[in-house]
């Protein structure tokens, strides 16, 4: 809590504000950072393991800004995209499939090195969570 009155220091009361060379606004040192629409976490765009971060590392929520080509920023939807499921590339890399809550579009994104491992595990185990489908599938397959 800042002090509103400064007793005994009345002559410095109207001191002009010091010039700041760090710009926090557009084009500043946080120009590319974004705030997650799901959990309001301030996310830096520098991510380990990937050059283009497109989802929050904490809650894996993304934003529908790209159309068909990743990075084109051509979509007019701007809806929230939530992680729907996980898939694995042939080289063993995990991909998150995002589902737009506004228009229903699906997109696949690579996971980053600092993504929340617990949320990823819950996503991977979600098909096996409901015992009825999984056990019936196993009983008929074996």
């Amino acid at each position: 809590m800042p002090r509103r009155t400064q007793p005994g220091n009345r002559k410095n009361r109207h001191r002009p504000q010091r010039y700041k060379d760090v710009l926090h606004g557009n084009g500043g040192h946080r120009a590319n950072d974004f705030r997650c629409v799901g959990c309001r976490l301030d996310v830096s765009l520098v991510a380990p393991g990937t050059a283009h971060r497109n989802h929050c590392p904490n809650c894996l929520v993304s934003l529908h800004v790209d159309d068909r080509v990743p990075g084109d920023r051509a979509s007019e939807c701007h809806g929230r995209m939530e992680a729907l499921s996980l898939t694995v590339r042939p080289d063993g890399e995990w991909m998150i499939i995002h589902h737009c809550l506004s228009c229903g579009e699906l997109s696949a994104n690579r996971i980053a090195g600092d993504d929340n491992a617990l949320v990823l595990m819950r996503l991977a185990l979600r098909p096996l969570q409901d015992g009825s489908v999984a056990s019936s599938a196993l009983l008929t397959a074996l």
Partner: peptide, 23 residues
């Protein structure tokens, strides 16, 4: 085909990108 369905469901667990022992 239930075999292919189950194989796709457990596919991420076969090659986890992080060690699962911590869980």
């Amino acid at each position: 085909n239930q075999l292919i369905l189950m194989r796709m469901a457990v596919r991420p667990l076969a090659q986890p990108p992080f060690p699962l022992e911590a869980f």
